[in-house]
Design a protein around this nucleic acid. Structure first.
Lengths: 341, 341
DNA sequence: CTGAAAGCGCTTACAG
DNA sequence: CTGAAAGCGCTTACAG
């Protein structure tokens, strides 16, 4: 059973397609009883406009694209949920794509979305994205794009972020306040801005409080789907190299949880021997033992905010006005738990 | 800068739109050098076909819809990832929607997807979905639909599931093997088939092994976004009502983790006083302490399988053949950890 | 108040 | 080998 079309309704009613279309859209210049007849038949035939045709005609798809590095990730799940919920309220559908932290895939996916004529794009960049010409291509096509979480300073567009530097500073200062003298850092990959910022916050906090910054205390991890293992590995190396460390600030909760596991295996007591602060506030951080002190990163709200901003820009562009890019910073919060107790 | 169209290429080259279209699609009846000229220009102009137009014309959208009850959920994240990864390989885009466990929303979303003319739908039903006429509407429109995880026996369609009954039986039997004599069950909501099946597996295992089935040992939880709290609450009630219980089989890991938290708070030792088995094998179950014995449910593979089956059905329908529905059962595995140690 | 016409950007059967 | 024509299902400016 093929879906009903305007034409079929028009034929049944002996009217023109235009009249039917206008009646359904409640144009003021259509007769009241004509409207009624059309609507009644449309309802009984269960007529639904073919979005494909409407989209082609009106040149908008009521669809936005979302590219994230990794779907199975507590923070990103929350972002997706935030975006989907706001999009639905505004009548938009969300196409989801995963870049797997690969710049190359990211490029292809942007192209896919562009061909699909999405009305806008929301993206968190892959770790290895440093060239951004593919993003510029989006703006050339007059499609708004909003970045969140992993953004690029090279691109002029709206961004929804947290103050990673400040949050990391706060996390590190918390360790200092708790009496740590020699604080290590497990940082994220080298390219992403937020991992750089967290590192900077850590470093500044040390220096501001008269502690030495020792580069050998900084360990790198990709923070990809091996995060947990990376945490264990780094913790192992840390214990081999620097037995005197009494605090660690770790780039992501999952990595921190890996580290905690290794500490436990090796009989290192947390928080007595080493205190630990994570980042992101994954749900599981509150239920492990000892529970993890961390920085709460509002994923759901970031998603909502990113969509809302994108929506504003879509509307602005529709009206032919110029976009005003915003840099929206959401608040983070230190959640104190047992690993720094 | 508006995207380039076939017409523009045709004008520049002094050819007809048809020729350009066919050249780009490598029709055999187009001259070799014509093809070359068209392609070269198309490339240099960065021509990309407008999917909206193609879709309208060919009557397929190369898009599938996915409806799940809750995005922020380790199991579902994995399913999403599985679906997205397979879809991308086949050139399909995935529209994601969250039903929030609401049958009403689910209905609206199916309609949305139908209007969008998706080529197929993958769905895990909301907890309160018992009427399924909205699903039947999908088949009326000749759109294939595949269910996974929370399926309905009332609907004849392909399904990707696990053998919940068998898995629950195995989980319960494991508790019995470990010496438990009085085993409680925290079940899921009353409607979903999989929660019924898990309950049945639990019950049968008890009876098969000469243990009494005591309905007062069965606690219900919605398994929605309050799962963790529900686990705590149920555990509390359990301890109040039935101090003699020495084992619990729990419908979902997250609920189990809530229960473990309550047990710990009340000084009940796991596994010494009570042994616990969860269901789903969330990542965090492996890192908490004591780590949780559970049933591994292959989310990623379920997603892949669901998309693959949907793809087969889309192709079948395109060829005008009749669909053959499959009930695909994936293997589960008992993961033994400390809570039953 | 209603309808004929043009057009969104593409595809494809048909003619030459 | 190339092109004119019809059409996918809708919307909207224009005419009457």
């Amino acid at each position: 059973m093929k879906p009903v079309t305007l034409k079929q309704i028009a034929e049944r009613l002996n009217m023109s397609v235009s009249t039917v279309s206008k009646a359904l859209k409640d144009y003021p210049d259509i007769g009241v009883d004509t409207k009624k007849r059309v609507r009644d038949l449309a309802r009984s035939l269960n007529y639904k406009p073919n979005s494909l045709a409407v989209n082609l005609r009106t040149n908008e798809s009521k669809t936005v694209g979302l590219i994230i590095p990794e779907i199975v990730h507590h923070f990103f799940s929350n972002v997706i949920k935030g975006i989907v919920s706001r999009a639905e309220k505004k009548g938009y559908l969300v196409i989801i794509l995963q870049s797997d932290e690969s710049n190359e895939l990211e490029r292809k996916q942007i192209e896919l979305l562009l061909n699909q004529r999405v009305d806008g794009i929301i993206i968190s960049l892959a770790n290895d994205t440093d060239q951004c010409d593919h993003i510029e291509g989006v703006f050339k096509q007059q499609i708004p794009l909003v970045m969140f979480d992993k953004v690029s300073k090279r691109i002029d567009c709206s961004k929804v972020v947290i103050d990673d530097r400040k949050a990391a500073y706060e996390a590190t200062k918390h360790l200092i306040d708790k009496g740590c003298k020699r604080i290590a850092h497990f940082r994220g990959a080298l390219t992403p801005l937020n991992s750089i910022d967290r590192f900077m916050g850590y470093r500044t906090a040390l220096l501001d409080h008269g502690l030495e910054f020792d580069p050998s205390l900084v360990y790198i991890c990709a923070c990809d789907d091996r995060s947990f293992e990376e945490g264990k590995e780094n913790a192992k190396k840390l214990l081999e190299d620097h037995r005197d460390v009494d605090g660690v600030f770790i780039n992501t909760d999952l990595v921190a949880i890996g580290a905690l596991t290794e500490f436990k295996n090796q009989g290192v007591r947390v928080p007595e021997d080493i205190k630990v602060v994570g980042f992101s506030n994954w749900f599981m951080s509150s239920v492990i033992s000892p529970s993890l002190t961390t920085i709460d990163q509002p994923g759901f709200r970031m998603g909502e905010t990113a969509f809302d901003q994108l929506f504003i820009e879509i509307e602005t562009l529709k009206k032919g006005k110029d976009l005003i890019f915003k840099n929206i910073e959401l608040e983070t919060k230190l959640i104190e738990r047992e690993t720094t107790g």
